[in-house]
C-alpha cells in the first residue's frame, strides 16, 4: 500500500487567544504525517507539545494557518465526521464508573452505532480485532480500575483502534510505566502502524526509546520545528539543542543522552 498524507499543517500558529491578547506558543509550523508511520513528538516540558496536539485534534483553535486532515480542512469536519477520522488517547484519568474493559473498548464504536449505541456484528468484529491486536483478551471482563497502568494504556489504545480512524493521536502514553512496559507499548504502537497502516502520532519524554522505535520524529525547540527520521536528526545534531542545559548532551554514537 502506498503511504499517503493523513494530516498536514500549513503555516500553522498555535497558542491561546483571549479578548485582549494573543499568546503565541509556536508559529510557522509545517508538518505532514503519512499513513503507516509511527511518529514521535518530543520537546522539553512547557514547550507546547500538548498545545500542538490539542490543536491537531481540534480541541483548540489554531491562531492562524491551516490543518488538513485527509486533504480536507479540519474545521470543515462535523463532530461526527471528525470522530470517524481521528481518535485520541489522553493522559487524563477516567471518571469513576463500573465500565468493564470490553465496554470501554466498545465505546470506540460510538461514531458508527445507532441512537442507543447498539453494536452490530461489524462493530463486534472491529472490537474483537482491536482486542486481539493489543493482546488484552485475558482482561476483557475485568473492570477498568482493576487492571495495571500498562494494561490500561493498552485498553485505551484498543478503544482508539476500535474507533477505526486513519489517525490516532496519543498524549504521553508511556508516562507512569516501567521500562519493560514502555518498550512493549512502543513496540505495540510500531506494530499497529505497520499492520493497520494507520498514522500514529504520540508525544513522549522517552527520547532514546523513541529514537530506536519510531519512523519519524518531530523535535520541538524554542527556535524551530524539525520533522525527520531519527537517524537524520542525530546526524544534524538536533538533540543537543533540545534542552537549554549545557550539562546534558547527546552522544551520537551511543544514541542516548549523557550528562556531566
Amino acid at each position: 500500500m502506498k503511504n499517503k498524507t493523513v494530516i498536514a499543517t500549513n503555516h500553522l500558529s498555535i497558542g491561546y487567544s483571549s479578548k485582549n491578547s494573543k499568546t503565541v506558543i509556536a508559529q510557522n509550523i509545517n508538518l505532514s504525517f503519512e499513513s503507516g508511520k509511527l511518529i514521535a513528538l518530543i520537546g522539553a516540558n512547557g514547550i507546547g507539545k500538548s498545545t500542538l496536539l490539542r490543536t491537531l485534534t481540534g480541541i483548540q483553535k489554531p491562531l492562524s494557518g491551516e490543518i488538513e486532515l485527509n486533504q480536507k480542512p479540519l474545521q470543515a469536519y462535523t463532530a461526527l465526521e471528525l470522530a470517524q477520522n481521528l481518535s485520541v488517547v489522553l493522559t487524563e484519568k477516567l471518571p469513576p464508573s463500573n465500565l468493564t474493559v470490553y465496554e470501554l473498548v466498545a465505546l470506540g464504536r460510538q461514531p458508527y452505532t445507532n441512537w442507543v449505541g447498539k453494536l452490530t456484528s461489524v462493530d463486534q468484529e472491529k472490537i474483537a480485532n482491536a482486542i486481539a491486536l493489543t493482546a488484552i483478551q485475558e482482561i476483557v471482563h475485568k473492570k477498568h480500575f482493576e487492571i495495571s497502568d500498562g494494561q490500561f494504556q493498552k485498553v485505551l489504545i484498543a478503544r482508539a483502534l476500535a474507533q477505526d480512524t486513519p489517525l490516532i493521536i496519543l498524549d504521553e502514553p508511556t508516562t507512569h510505566l516501567d521500562l519493560h512496559h514502555k518498550v512493549s507499548l512502543f513496540k505495540l504502537l510500531k506494530k499497529l502502524a505497520q499492520e493497520t497502516h494507520k498514522c500514529i502520532l504520540f508525544s513522549t519524554h522517552d527520547i532514546d526509546l523513541a529514537i530506536q522505535l519510531s519512523d519519524e520524529m518531530i523535535v520541538m525547540t524554542q527556535k524551530q520545528f524539525i520533522q525527520d527520521q531519527p537517524c537524520n536528526l542525530i546526524e544534524k545534531g538536533v538533540f543537543n539543542s533540545l534542552f537549554q542545559d549545557e550539562d546534558i548532551t547527546f552522544d551520537a554514537q551511543k544514541g542516548k543522552f549523557v550528562f556531566k
Binding site: V88, L107, V116
Partner: peptide, 23 residues
C-alpha cells in the same frame, strides 16, 4: 432516552466524549 448514547460516552469524561462526536 434521547441522550442514552451520550450518557455512555460521558463515562469516559468530557474530552473523550467530545472525541467520539458527542455535542
Amino acid at each position: 432516552i434521547s441522550k442514552i448514547k451520550a450518557l455512555d460516552a460521558l463515562l469516559l469524561g468530557e474530552s473523550y466524549a467530545k472525541s467520539l462526536g458527542i455535542n
